[in-house]
Amino acid sequence: MPINLQKGQTINLEKDQFDLSSVTIGLGWDVTKKEKGFFSSLFASAEDDDYDLDAIAFLLNKDGKVANVGNQKLEGGDVIFFNNLRHTSGNVYHTGDNRTGDGDGDDEQLIVKLNRIGSEYEKIVFLVSIYQGIQKNQNFGQVDNAFIRAVDAKNHEILRYDLSHDHSFDGKCSMVFGELYRHNGNWKFRAIGMPYETDNFVEILKHNYL
């Protein structure tokens, strides 16, 4: 039972039930169902209407900023995404880019070995965005069974957002999902769920984390 001390202050007597020695961010969605019509099969190229969701991680320093963006293409730095699948430390990595949503369960995963993260990193922020969503006229509301979730080292789900059926994500192409942060020597997970219209995570990076 939480006890209220002053406004906004609470002592939480619940224990964190999660094993945060490693955390997996999973992203899943279903492949677009193709129209069977003659003209659409004749003229529409398959790549155009596939939804391509991406999971992205920013590793932040104590000021809440990305200290090392890598080269001009963001390669080799503290932003982990489809063109920089593995952090130089090896402790944050992507299992690979899925461009259609094919397969059950998580279609893309980002794995974070939290117990090995260097002390220069204080926080890790996770995002999901639809690749070229604006150009393809796509948004989360149209994707079937899209979700983003965080799972602990023992495979317990910490947090899950249903992106397809939550109206706050209609018309949006990106979302800051949640963050892991250090607190008194331990890692904690905080849900954020902040949607953005942009399909370009670099805009969010520039605006908030540089």
């Binding site: 001390l5 202050q9 008194n184």
Partner: peptide
């Protein structure tokens, strides 16, 4: 005086 003066599993210092 405030929460941070309770040392327990959710506040180790």
């Amino acid at each position: 005086p405030c929460d941070e003066f309770l040392v327990y599993y959710n506040n180790t210092k």
